[in-house]
């Protein structure tokens, strides 16, 4: 008997916030809105790192979060907003002692995350792009996109 093919996964609508581990009451929401230019990537990650540092988060986890934040902001700027400086990227994040949450939204048409080619395959391994989403999925504990595909939400345990 052949294997039953897996059911296609539907992206979750992250508008419904309680579907996630809701940040604790101590978690302060920090919001940023940055223009679609490359220097915005470092600006967002610097703010995130400052917040992580003030919570005493270890360097290893901070590096993972920095990388995933930068990859997601870069995707929002380059692929979402197509580097149009009139369009903005909105970032909301929460940090408490046990978890980090971040939502990054662009003003683009969105994309289908399940259609991103596997960059580790023989036909893709030599490509010079397409690894950002894979890194995000592997380094964060939970990653979801909204239905439109213009907003990513990522979550990582810090404890």
């Amino acid at each position: 008997m052949g294997k039953v093919p897996p059911k296609p996964q539907k992206s979750l609508d992250i508008t419904a916030y309680p579907a996630y581990n809701t940040p604790t009451v101590e978690a302060k929401k920090i919001s940023l809105k940055v223009p679609s230019e490359i220097k915005s990537i470092g600006k967002v990650s610097s703010e995130v790192l400052k917040s992580l540092s003030s919570c005493g988060i270890d360097e290893d986890k901070s590096l993972d979060i920095r990388l995933c934040t930068e990859e997601a902001v870069r995707n929002a700027i380059v692929h979402g907003n197509r580097s149009n400086k009139d369009l903005y990227v909105k970032v909301d994040y929460w940090v408490d002692k046990s978890r980090f949450y971040i939502e990054i939204e662009d003003e683009g048409a969105g994309f289908a995350p399940d259609r991103v080619p596997d960059p580790t395959g023989n036909s893709s391994i030599l490509k010079e792009s397409g690894r950002g989403v894979l890194l995000i999925k592997k380094l964060m504990d939970r990653v979801d996109f909204n239905e439109k595909g213009n907003r990513i939400r990522m979550e990582k345990a810090l404890g």
């Binding site: 990859e71 030599l126 490509k127 010079e128 792009s129």
Partner: peptide, 16 residues
């Protein structure tokens, strides 16, 4: 101290 996906891509390009 830090490499992102652009850095990985650049190294792949050099190898190619």
């Amino acid at each position: 101290t830090y490499v992102d996906s652009s850095g990985l891509a650049t190294l792949v390009g050099i190898l190619k």
